[in-house]
Amino acid sequence: MRVILVERLTPGEQPSLNELEALVKTLNYEVVAKVQQFRPPDPAYQIGRGKVKELAALVKSNQAERVVFRNQLTPSQAYKLSRLVGVEVVDRFQIVLEIFAMRAGSPEAKLQIEYARLRYELPKIREQIKALLSVEQPGFRGGGEYEVNVRYDMVKRKLANLRRKLKSLEKTREERRKFRRKRGFKLVALAGYTNSGKSTLLNALTDARAEVDDMYFTTLMPRTRALKSSRMILLTDTVGFIDDLPPWLFEAFKATLEEIYMADLVVLLVDASDSVPEMIRKLRTSQKILAGYHVKTITALNKIDLITEEELKRKMEVLHSMTSTLVPISAARGTNLDALLESIRTNA
Results as ranks from 00 to 15, higher is better:
Thr297Asp: 04
Tyr146Glu: 06
Lys156Cys: 06
Phe38Gln: 13
Asn71Tyr: 05
Arg119Met: 15
Ser343Cys: 04
Arg223Gln: 15
Asn149Glu: 15
Arg173Pro: 00
Arg209Leu: 09
Gly192Glu: 14
Ile125Ala: 01
Val68Tyr: 01
Ile329Val: 12
Arg49Asp: 10
Thr236Ser: 14
Leu84Glu: 14
Met1Leu: 06
Ala78Val: 07
Gln94His: 11
Ile280Pro: 01
Ala339Tyr: 00
Lys167Ala: 15
Arg119Glu: 13
Gln287Phe: 01
Asn28Leu: 11
Tyr216Ser: 12
Thr219Gly: 13
Leu118Pro: 12
Leu132Glu: 09
Leu97Phe: 02
Thr194Pro: 15
Arg126His: 07
Glu147Leu: 10
Val6Ser: 12
Ala78Glu: 08
Ile113Trp: 04
Phe93Ser: 13
Thr194Phe: 07
Glu127Val: 04
Arg183Trp: 00
Val276Gly: 01
Gly12Asn: 11
Ile329Ala: 02
Val270Arg: 10
Tyr115Met: 15
Leu5Thr: 09
Met279Pro: 02
Ile280Gly: 01
Arg223Asn: 14
Gly50Phe: 08
Leu220Phe: 02
Ile4Asp: 15
Val24Arg: 02
Gln128Gly: 04
Asp237Trp: 11
Pro222Met: 10
Phe250Val: 13
Leu162Val: 10
Leu341Cys: 00
Met279Asp: 03
Ser343Gly: 01
Thr238Leu: 05
Gln112Leu: 05
Lys53Arg: 14
Gly12Met: 08
Arg141Asp: 00
Glu258Ile: 02
Glu147Ala: 09
Lys282Pro: 04
Val32Pro: 08
Leu166Arg: 01
Val90Met: 03
Pro11Met: 12
Thr238Gly: 06
Glu145Trp: 04
Leu265Phe: 14
Gly197Tyr: 09
Thr26Gly: 12
Arg181Met: 07
Gly139Trp: 06
Lys130Tyr: 05
Arg176Ile: 03
Asp271Thr: 03
Pro41Trp: 13
Leu97Glu: 09
Gly292Glu: 05
Ser229Gln: 00
Arg126Cys: 00
Leu111Glu: 05
Ile289Gln: 00
Gly142Leu: 07
Arg103Ile: 07
Pro328Phe: 06
Glu19Met: 09
Leu23Ile: 12
Ala160Lys: 14
Ala191Lys: 12
Thr206His: 08
Pro247Tyr: 08
Asn195Asp: 13
Tyr115Glu: 12
Leu132Ala: 08
Arg333Asp: 13
